[in-house]
Design a binder for these strands. Structure first.
Length: 169
DNA sequence: AAGAAGATTCGCT
DNA sequence: GCGAATCTTCTTA
């Protein structure tokens, strides 16, 4: 199975909405391994989330994978997700994890090495990148840290760059 | 030791 | 649109 990452959110060091904010724990230790490791956790009793760690070893930071455009193994993803709708296979962080059979066993995996899950380089030019506030968080709401390919149908939530609001001070 | 909140999804209305 | 499902962690007593 494979796909193109089309939507992400950044959780940089010192971001109070990030899981690494209150220091290293048993659950979030993968965020402190260095750059390019998987951080997988379970939330709401229903969904797994996949992050890619960032920054140097000892620094807690990561990028949440929010949506993927499926490329290979689509039939398998349809079975895993129990839907035939192409755009619903990996649109959303929990769905993405389900489509790729990602769970806590993949926590801590080096995504830049040979293994069960890895990151490759772009297979096709990316269209323009849109930016909005992050989804589903309550802190640091003013930050534009969600990034996605503009207009891509596999993106969850708003698909166009957030408009400059006219009414704010 | 108990409770609330959370980077969500699904099913029903 | 709204609420339930249901696990882990951190906070409060």
């Amino acid at each position: 199975m494979s796909g193109r990452i089309v939507e992400t959110e950044a959780y940089p060091p010192g971001d109070s909405s990030g899981h690494a904010y209150r220091g290293r724990t048993a659950r979030n230790q993968s965020l402190f391994l260095g750059t390019g490791f998987a951080y997988v956790y379970f939330i709401y009793g229903t969904s797994y989330m996949l992050n890619v760690s960032a920054e140097e070893p000892g620094v807690g930071a990561g990028v949440l994978m929010r949506a993927i455009e499926p490329l290979e193994g689509i039939n398998r993803m349809k079975r895993l997700r129990k839907t035939d709708k192409l755009t619903d296979l990996a649109r959303g962080p929990g769905r993405l994890a389900a489509a790729f059979e990602i769970d806590q066993r993949l926590d801590g995996v080096d995504l830049c090495a040979d293994g069960p899950l890895w990151l490759g380089t772009a297979v096709r030019e990316t269209a323009s990148i849109g930016t909005t506030v992050r989804i589903g968080i309550t802190r640091e709401v003013g930050q534009l840290r969600r990034f996605f390919e503009s207009g891509n149908p596999f993106v969850s939530g708003p698909r166009q760059r957030e408009k400059k609001s006219s009414g704010l001070p």
